[in-house]
Design a protein around this nucleic acid. Structure first.
Length: 852
DNA sequence: GTGTAATGCTATTGG
DNA sequence: AGCATTACAC
């Protein structure tokens, strides 16, 4: 692991060697009843709570049960819930596990566990520590749409062609750099990355990345990957923070370890370094997220990281029939890279996998729907016993239609989540702006929605000025008089009305609870009115969605539940310790940031009472909202009797009595994109393995010989995966056996020409440390803080600026002052920069330092 | 600046 | 086929 090696973490990690694995690992206060529900290996895995442990958990082997009991056991052995960090793959998994643990121990205790996804846990920690790394505590989390929109903006600014620099591709380049802990500056100097970009004809990716990172920072925003990246920065550059969390999280558990990426890996490694009470749970055979940076090596190399670790292999499957387990085993055996294990079951043989053939995607839907109907009758099973799994979301439509026609209730998981709907995002954007007016994506989203006569050209002018002065759009809007924007008075008035409106919202953040403020915003921003006037069915639905969001806000205000439950820890109050002398704040402006950080209305000393603050406010509601996904919206009646439709990725960790795996065709599953290398194909195969092993009683598979794609019909060939299942476990439905040419498409298949060896993408990138050295952070801190409050910079040192001086600008570099006009604080300087030429700068805003 | 019609591009997988 | 962006008329 080149990166891991090149980071000198050893020097940072405070090695307090944990006690050697003790012989007193026999607990004293364990309720015997839950241990009785475990088999021998499971029990050992639960009881071994000292030191590094790897649990290799085959599909259906009771992994969740082991994790749950292990945590319960830790608690009963006297470990404080606050000292346990359990990282799960979804928020839903965390919620469910907490519930189960609550039933074994007490609910009060389980609530104090630090349990959630990497993103939600470290977002919470970053809220408390943000100022250390130069971010405001009220930072926004950009979702993928925000990120891509920002990338598009940057592409336009740089005059790059979106067809060459596809935003999706640029985004994933940046994302994978971050997940490998390569910051934008490091990326620019990264030979292999540059080489790769140059060869792919996109040499400017580094430049885009740098701008992107700068813009996010200025907007006080982190994207998903930043949550992990910045956690790493925090732990690397602030040893006292590292020490604090090492000490706090004395026991660390990571679920689905096979799907962690490098960034996550380093976080865990760092946090666990002191006590090494780390337990990872995973199954290499179910690693299906390499496309977003997951590195299967993390689990394969666990032993190298912790040579004295204990391994427990859970190999007995309790979920599925013999047929399903054996069929799945016969498939996964085709993969090369795996941990040696043998999943077995003592369950009944069960029915064979039923393979069905259709002539088109629509017919496939009908066949599947009909089969579900029949199986329901034959087995007397409810709808919720069924799941339809597919490789791509686009396949859901044909299934939906067929189910609807047969009056079979269903629910689609994934796709557009509630929080991604346009109308919901619009209102959320107003909320975001109220909390953090620097949030550029939110600003652009709603500055002219509902339409208020602020058009593209106006926004262009403002953006240009912002780029020119290297300040945020919001700062321009607040100080329009100071810039020659050449915007007519009518528009100027509308702009200032908008600014006043947002400022009013901001001013109410602490006086109103989340619901009252949200309602107030929804009413006065004009969005509710706009939606209400639209009486089309879609319009009504949009209105209802906004109402739904407000309902959620209401519930949150009453109960404090926004879908992610993490403890409110006494020592997790945002750290307001000033790293630099606090900047003076102009009298007119409330010091919002410190208000946010200090929470004036909150209990003075929560540690004394243990009570939560009485009033639930909007910032608290918003703090994790970008991290919520569809499956987290708990209101969707989990228990409704519906057939589940979802992608195989979304089905990870779930199980159903009857599972339909559809669209088993070459170029669809395995995906066309995965045919370039062995490793990619192996990941597809693991995905197939995951799909099969979701089934408890019977698996069904189907393929179509033709389907619509981009509006035209294409021919399809059955997937190679079908013939990888040993024949004895499969049964062909009558229609799947074409009369003329039996087993058409089977047997003889040409080897895929591109099925070559490993593409070796392990990348020898070099991690350049000190992407953000401490000192620099201090400087940046000022700008971040000030921007988030909208206050004026303290540039009083520029009073003594005179013509002829050499100055340095954060972005424009060095230059010579050629003219000064106006009176402080409204004076302007003309600077001849060495590289970017002449610029006029308002000293009030410019971040200049005087060199000589 | 706003709204609509025509065009063109796209569909792995997801927190 | 569906969505997003662009072109063009008001």
């Amino acid at each position: 692991m080149t990166w891991a090696k090149s980071i000198n973490f050893e020097s940072l990690i405070q090695h307090t060697r944990r006690p050697t694995v003790s012989d007193k690992s026999t607990p004293t206060t364990v309720k015997s009843n839950y241990l009785d529900e475990l088999n021998e290996i499971q029990r050992q895995a639960v009881l071994c709570i000292d030191g590094p442990v790897m649990i290799v958990a085959g599909a259906g082997s009771g992994k969740t049960r082991v994790l749950t009991y292990r945590i319960a056991h830790l608690l009963q052995s006297g470990v404080d819930a606050f000292n346990i960090l359990a990282l799960t793959f979804t928020n839903k998994a965390a919620r469910e596990m907490k519930e189960r643990i609550g039933k074994i121990v007490s609910e009060g205790e389980s609530r104090n566990l630090w349990m959630g996804t990497f993103h939600s846990v470290f977002a919470r920690i970053l809220r408390a520590e943000a100022t250390k790394i130069g971010y405001p505590a009220n930072f926004t989390i950009y979702d993928t749409d925000d990120s891509k929109s920002l990338i598009k903006t940057i592409l336009k600014e740089l005059g790059l062609d979106e067809k060459i620099y596809k935003p999706n591709l640029v985004y994933s380049r940046i994302s994978s750099a971050k997940n490998n802990l390569i910051g934008s500056k490091a990326y620019l100097h990264d030979k292999s990355a540059n080489e790769e970009d140059r060869l792919s004809g996109k040499p400017k990716i580094g430049e885009i990345y740098e701008r992107y990172a700068r813009r996010c920072f200025k907007a006080g925003a982190m994207d998903f990957d930043d949550l992990l990246f910045n956690t790493n920065i925090l732990l690397r550059d602030f040893p006292e923070a590292l020490y604090k969390y090492q000490d706090k999280f004395r026991h660390i558990l990571v679920d689905e370890y096979q799907d962690t990426n490098f960034s996550q890996y380093v976080i865990v490694k760092q946090l666990a370094a002191r006590f090494e009470n780390i337990c990872v749970v995973g199954d290499d055979a179910q690693s299906i997220y390499s496309f977003r940076g997951a590195n299967i090596q993390n689990i394969l190399n666990f032993e190298k990281d912790y040579p004295d670790m204990k391994t427990f292999k859970l190999e007995q499957n309790y979920r599925s029939t013999q047929n399903i387990v054996k069929a799945a085993n016969s498939v996964i055996a085709k993969n090369k890279d795996q941990i040696d294990k043998k999943v077995w079951t003592s369950n009944a043989d069960g029915d064979r996998i039923l393979l069905m053939k259709a002539n088109s995607d629509n017919e496939e839907g009908q066949i599947v729907a009909r089969s579900i109907f029949e199986t329901k009758m034959n087995k007397q099973a409810p709808n919720k016993a069924f799941a339809i799994l597919y490789r791509t979301n686009a396949q859901s439509r044909a299934m939906e239609e067929a189910l609807r026609r047969m009056n079979i209730p269903y629910r689609i998981y994934g796709g557009l989540s509630f929080y991604q709907r346009k109308e919901v995002k619009d209102l959320l954007a107003y909320f975001r702006l109220a909390i953090n007016p620097s949030d550029e994506e939110a600003l652009k989203r709603v500055i002219n929605y509902p339409a208020r006569g602020i058009g593209d050209t106006t926004i262009q002018k403002i953006s240009l000025a912002a780029a020119d002065h290297d300040i945020s759009l919001w700062t321009i809007l607040e100080n329009m008089g100071d810039f020659n924007l050449e915007i007519n008075t009518g528009t100027t008035n509308r702009l200032s009305e908008f600014v006043v409106m947002i400022k009013n919202f901001t001013a109410m953040i602490f006086s109103l609870n989340a619901y009252d403020l949200g309602m107030n915003i929804a009413n006065s921003c004009g969005l509710l009115r706009e939606l209400y006037t639209d009486k089309s069915p879609e319009g009504v639905s949009r209105y209802e969605n906004v109402q739904e969001l407000l309902n959620g806000l209401k519930e949150f205000s009453d109960s404090g539940n926004n879908g992610i439950e993490l403890p409110e820890d006494a020592d997790m109050v945002p750290d307001t310790t000033p790293l630099v002398v606090p900047m003076p704040v102009s009298a007119a402006e409330p010091d919002l940031l410190s208000a946010l950080a200090e929470e004036p209305d909150a209990d003075e000393n929560p540690a004394d009472t243990g009570a939560k603050p009485a009033v639930k406010r909007l910032p608290e509601f918003m703090q994790d909202i970008a991290l919520l996904t569809d499956s987290d919206s708990k209101k969707a009646k989990e228990n409704a009797d519906q057939v589940s439709l979802m992608t195989i990725h979304a089905a990870k960790g779930l199980e159903f009595p009857y599972v339909y795996i559809v669209g088993l065709e070459e170029n669809l599953f395995p995906s066309q994109m995965a045919l370039n290398s062995r490793t990619e194909l192996e990941e597809e195969r693991r995905l197939f393995y995951v799909a099969i092993t979701r089934a408890e009683k019977q698996a069904f598979m189907s393929y179509a010989t033709s389907r619509y794609r981009w509006g035209n019909l294409i021919n399809c060939e059955p997937s190679r995966f079908i013939e990888e299942i040993e024949a004895e476990f499969i049964e062909f439905a009558p229609s799947a056996m074409p009369s003329g040419t039996p087993r058409q498409g089977f047997g003889i298949r040409q080897k895929n020409a591109t099925d070559v060896s490993n593409r070796n993408k392990t990348g020898e990138d070099v991690y350049t440390p000190a992407t953000a050295p401490v000192k620099k952070n201090l400087v940046k801190l000022n700008t971040a803080v000030k921007q988030s409050t909208g206050a004026v910079y303290d540039n009083s040192h520029l009073k003594k600026l005179t013509v002829g001086m050499q100055v340095e600008h954060e972005r424009f570099g060095t230059g010579i002052v050629s003219a000064i006009e106006g009176e402080f604080p409204n004076n302007k300087a003309t600077v001849e920069f060495d590289t970017v030429g002449q610029k006029q700068l308002l000293l009030k805003f410019a971040k200049l330092s005087i060199l000589s």
